[in-house]
Amino acid sequence: MSLWEYANPQKFMHLSRRVLPFVAGAAALCLIVGLVWGFFATPNDYKQGPTVKIIYLHVPAAMMAINAWVMMLVASLIWLIRRHHVSALTAKAAAPVGLVFTLIALATGALWGQPMWGTWWAWDPRLTSFLILALFYLGYIALWAAVDDPDTAADLTGILCIVGSVFALLSRYAVNFWNQGLHQGASLSLDKEENVSDVFWFPLLVCIAGFVLMFVALVLLRTRTEIRARRLAALIARERMG
């Protein structure tokens, strides 16, 4: 069996209907366990005090804001190269989810930054590239809404997605390119010296798993809606032609 078989909308609908409840349930479980563990059962950080509890939302949301765009890039490339409609609809379905994750990262970053850095916002490389990423998400969603022909919309948004990938990657690696700005380097690293302490790391891992699963569940749910919307439009068009 080939992966490309799931580019068939009917097969995708059958598979996603079976998988979605398990993914959604696992996402809810991981999020509840991770956030409750992180909020109620972890100590304050010796430098940042209780604000460290924001890490359980900020880091997973920021990670997924970038990864959602990368997923959209892969789906857009599949559309542009192989013309599979489900991949274009999956990219479209993922955009509002990625936008919400980006907004969460920006909002929690500002709320965390104010007491720690003394400012809500700075034109720091990572913060600025995240703001641009949020604008790219908005532009991507607006472009889908603005173009009537779905194939043309998929082509144009696919190209926008490729361009926006520069900022998605920049927002990930900005702190490594420029040794300036307020934002620190990676919180998660395989290097023990750089990584956060285990007491924060384990609940954070559970929260990251929760955000990944929530993203998958929402994209499956929203792609199913997009496929139905496409089918509805086709039925209405057929009816009009008599």
Partner: peptide, 10 residues
């Protein structure tokens, strides 16, 4: 405010 605000917004 910062911690609870972050959780409420998110």
């Amino acid at each position: 405010d910062a911690v609870l605000g972050s959780y409420a917004v998110s």
